[in-house]
Design a protein around this nucleic acid. Structure first.
Lengths: 231, 231
DNA sequence: TCGGAGGGTTATGCATTCATTATTGTCGAC
DNA sequence: GTCGACAATAATGAATGCATAACCCTCCGA
């Protein structure tokens, strides 16, 4: 088919460059299009995407480095399932890194940082909380944390947290409706921003740490309580 | 060559599996076998290693994810040079993550952790300091920090810090002999271990933070002072 | 002399082919 | 009836071939 003079109406969502293949697979994983622990062969993925195995393999290597999939030596690729222990790992790291980010931003409070992005995200979350729209709230939460990371420009920090967000995303979406403390999160966000705006370095660090620790514990509790085994 | 009945004496260091190709390229980068900012074509790398471009490409993707190289769209692969700002990024993150590790280990001090690895590493460093052998001291330092990370079993934490160690390694080796405070580092290590053994969570966190912050500042100062532009 | 356009060259990115190896199913023996 | 070994199958991992696209050099015009 690739060398045929006339490309016959491509199979499904076909073509696209290598970066597209990566993006599409990643999106499918994050949106839970593949069930937890789903296993698939490279050739099947290539078939679905209308390309050859080569760009699929390269995308898989990247996704493996991000911790989203694991390659089983001769059995294909597997969407990594997350257990409570994995979420514990992820939240511990996020707690440390975002505390760092909050503290460093607070230390630069006098430089006239643009915090409107943080305020926008908070308003989005508070409105969504009032309207009882968990999906929108989650979007705001994600935006808040990403905005915060972007404010202190540490490219490596952003890359690492991005990877962790991606890994946690599916589980966060699934457990979203079991959480009881969206309002508490909103208040914690306010506290964090207040500390940052006031240049309170240690306060910002502690507020962020408390926020993420509480969120992580809540998440782990939910997972243990409902005993969702393969997430 | 691959399909010939008799494999004629392989070009150089040839053959090996895909993981080998990755390991060999990585080792060459870490050992500074390639100069800073060195650029090379995939085919040349494949030639050097006696394989085809395919495993080389896959290794490069992995190394790019680790931040060791960058692929220039049509110009080959380039060993990533590190500026002072990069080291600042790396040390900031390491500070946050190792503080977390130290605190979590201290919190489990009553569980009868095996700290002999830490003590061994410290003795190695102190002996090397007395004998004025910076190379051995650096090995001990590396061992100390890796040992500490391994003590709290968080696979993601280990993977992230490993990647950061790799990125910083070349620069650390180059600046090693310009450092004036190997003794101070030794004392700081003692303090950290004392806090951990005593179950002093906040003390361990703070000691580790101070240690890494000082080390990072010293590193950045050296880079700025000597103005090593492309590292 | 300088700037731009066009063609040649070449490395990458993707597709395809080949070989190795793990897995699975079947057959036979105990 | 069950366990083990052997063979067939099939998927991965590696290699090669091919087309695209960027870079560079040259040539022409201003």
């Amino acid at each position: 088919m690739p060398n045929s003079a006339i490309t016959v109406a491509a199979p499904k969502g076909s073509g696209g460059t290598g970066a597209d293949v990566y993006a599409r697979i990643k999106e499918d994983i994050l949106s839970n299009a593949y069930p937890a622990g789903f296993q698939i062969r490279e050739s099947d993925l290539a078939g679905k995407l209308g390309t050859s195995r080569t760009p699929v393999r390269e995308a898989i290597i990247r996704l493996e480095a991000e911790g989203l999939v694991e390659v089983l030596p001769r059995r294909g690729v597997r969407i990594r399932p997350l257990k409570a222990a994995d979420m514990r790992e992820i939240y511990d790291i996020l707690t440390a890194l975002e505390s760092l980010a909050a503290a460093q931003i607070a230390a630069r409070a006098t430089e006239g940082l643009d915090l409107t992005g943080l305020f926008d995200a908070m308003e989005m979350m508070e409105a969504a909380c009032d309207d009882n729209e968990p999906g929108t709230w989650a979007q705001g939460d994600d935006r808040f944390h990403r905005e915060l990371l972007c404010l202190n420009d540490n490219a490596r920090l952003i890359a690492i947290t991005d990877s962790l967000y991606s890994q946690a995303h599916r589980t966060q979406m699934i457990t979203l409706r079991m959480r009881k403390s969206l309002g508490a999160s909103n208040r914690e966000h306010r506290t964090i921003v207040t500390c940052i705006a006031g240049g309170d370095v240690d306060g910002a660090r502690r507020a962020m740490r408390d926020h993420r620790q509480r969120g992580g514990s809540e998440m782990v509790e939910i997972l243990k309580h409902y005993g969702l085994p393969p997430l």
